[in-house]
Design a binder for these strands. Sequence first.
DNA 1: TTGCTTGTTGAACGATCGTACAACAACTGG
DNA 2: CCAGTTGTTGTACGATCGTTCAACAAGCAA
Lengths: 207, 207
Amino acid sequence: MQVNASSPSFRRAEPDARRLSLIEACARVLARAGATGASVRAIAQEAGVSPGLVSHYFDGVDGLVAATYAHVDGQVSDALDTAVAAAGDDARARLEAFVTASFAAPIGTPALLATWIAFWSLVTARGDIAAQHDEQYAGYRARLEGLLADCGVPQGALRLAAISTTALVDGLWLELCLSPGCFTVAEAGAMARRHLDAITSPDRGSG
Amino acid sequence: MQVNASSPSFRRAEPDARRLSLIEACARVLARAGATGASVRAIAQEAGVSPGLVSHYFDGVDGLVAATYAHVDGQVSDALDTAVAAAGDDARARLEAFVTASFAAPIGTPALLATWIAFWSLVTARGDIAAQHDEQYAGYRARLEGLLADCGVPQGALRLAAISTTALVDGLWLELCLSPGCFTVAEAGAMARRHLDAITSPDRGSG
DNA sequence: TTGCTTGTTGAACGATCGTACAACAACTGG
DNA sequence: CCAGTTGTTGTACGATCGTTCAACAAGCAA
């Protein structure tokens, strides 16, 4: 019964668990306070640990931010995969699921957008973050190209079709989160589907 | 001839001129170093003045950033106005000019995007910046609605047509600046025009 | 219980942040 | 040429930044 006499002031965690805890705390701080407010002390306090742990587990605060970028991107990818898998086997349904998943939680939330904007704000200043963006963006487009091909978009039009769809979805996602009252999630989905109609219509395959 | 004996260590400027100089320096620093690197000292050095001037002319560094936001938005508006005016009287030409102007200088440049991203990163944390964004975004959409109406888009479809066009243009602009090698300005224009075709075609006016 | 391993703490460091303000000097009117 | 005005400087201040590291203690093995 001496366990309760003096409760432990902190608990040990496995390195991977603690790393994940710090990454999630970093994402929350980025969402709440932006890149400017993502200090080591703020992140550590959010995670309920001491500031020293950040440098202990990551290569400084920059390394933690980069790791958070990769982790959040992985969450987005997983959410997209789940949405596509839940859409069944119909090619058009899978395409629509992939596109409209960006407007629903956990992707289409102000918190995730704020996190993402914080990453974008680092692209200019940091080459490694820029490379990370290029890689993730290319992967997103490649997956979209596959879904578009399954819907009959010809090979020659595939690249621009994926780029324009990505641009429209990103733009809708952006404004939906920045100005939530301007239009609804349903309207965003309708606009995206209308664009897919135009893209996949066989009579207008080019451009 | 004593003027050259001791050259003045600094020059006085009219308040408005100095204010503009600081705003432009702030925009350059935001573009180069992001929101994280936009410190008073960095901005003052960029403007070639002493750090104390920032607090002297603006309500702290936050006030300078807000003023820079308004100024850069004004530049974008002017560039759009110029493009539309240069397009002549044809409604479709004016609409295309408005839309594709976002892909050319001075709008479609990594520097301006970096500045804009720095503003977005402040939307979350600061209510006045968020209000500024809403106002500017609404103004942009209102102007686009007018151009779309001139092209025969029916009243009922006007709102979503403007929103989707804005989203597509913003998304193209975003990725064009973040990953310049991915697609060209000409391709961005082609995709935008294709979207305008779909939006303005009378047989598919709704959605 | 005892000793060891090691995850964790928290103070300390120098650097940099935003801001304030007294001193200075560039320009103007006389 | 000489005040007077005031735009500008640059230092000083306290707060906060990222990072380091010796000391501490939680958990485990014996």
